[in-house]
């Protein structure tokens, strides 16, 4: 690629293929194009900027190392989401403070589970907390479909389950969130 400008007009898939073949500029363009999205996903999962930045960086490095394996079976976006998602989940799981807890004390999960340092001043914090306190699969489905605005099919690919299962998790999540937010209110 001789023209820098050219890279910016290419599709993600094209860039990814080129990057996989060793084209540094294509890779840089991809990174630049998607960093914010990666970071945003990370933040939505963990709710803390510091950690989201950490996760995003890890995703970027992983992306560099695995870009050559991108085959174009899925869209680049889905592929990237999957990478970002698994990285974020690894992070969250590794950080999970496991606590002795009765199921009736679900509320205390809100503060304990998943993330320690939430950015408390953020708008909609109540909802974020509630969502992050969901069981992991429901949480993931909600975040992918509602927060990331992915289709059920895309979410299913990323989560490695069927669309039906995604819908089912969403359904369960809505029920749960409803009760939960009523309690809080």
């Amino acid at each position: 690629m001789s023209e820098p400008a050219e890279a910016h007009n290419r599709t993600d898939e094209d860039l990814a293929q080129r990057a996989g073949a060793g084209d540094r500029r294509a890779f840089a363009t991809l990174l630049d194009r998607h960093y914010d999205r990666i970071y945003r996903l990370a933040w939505r999962w963990c709710g803390a900027r510091d950690r989201a930045e950490d996760i995003a960086q890890e995703v970027c490095v992983k992306l560099a190392q695995s870009i050559a394996t991108f085959r174009g079976d899925a869209t680049f976006r889905t592929w990237l989401y999957r990478l970002a998602y698994t990285t974020a989940i690894d992070h969250i799981r590794a950080n999970q403070r496991l606590v002795t807890l009765q199921p009736s004390d679900m509320l205390s999960l809100v503060d304990g589970a998943g993330c320690v340092m939430q950015d408390d001043t953020i708008e909609g914090q109540e909802l974020w907390r509630a969502v992050r306190a969901l069981p992991p699969q429901q949480r993931d489905a909600v975040l992918l479909v509602y927060a990331e605005d992915l289709s059920h099919a895309e979410a299913a690919t990323i989560l490695g389950c069927t669309e039906k299962t995604v819908s089912w998790h969403l359904h369960e999540a809505r029920k749960r969130l409803k009760t939960f937010l009523e309690q809080v209110a």
Partner: peptide
């Protein structure tokens, strides 16, 4: 979503490019 710090972003990009 609180935006990432520029420093974080540029460091992430550098790390990724180096890895690349």
């Amino acid at each position: 979503v609180p935006p990432p710090r520029d420093t974080a972003k540029s460091a992430a990009l550098s790390a990724a490019l180096a890895a690349f």
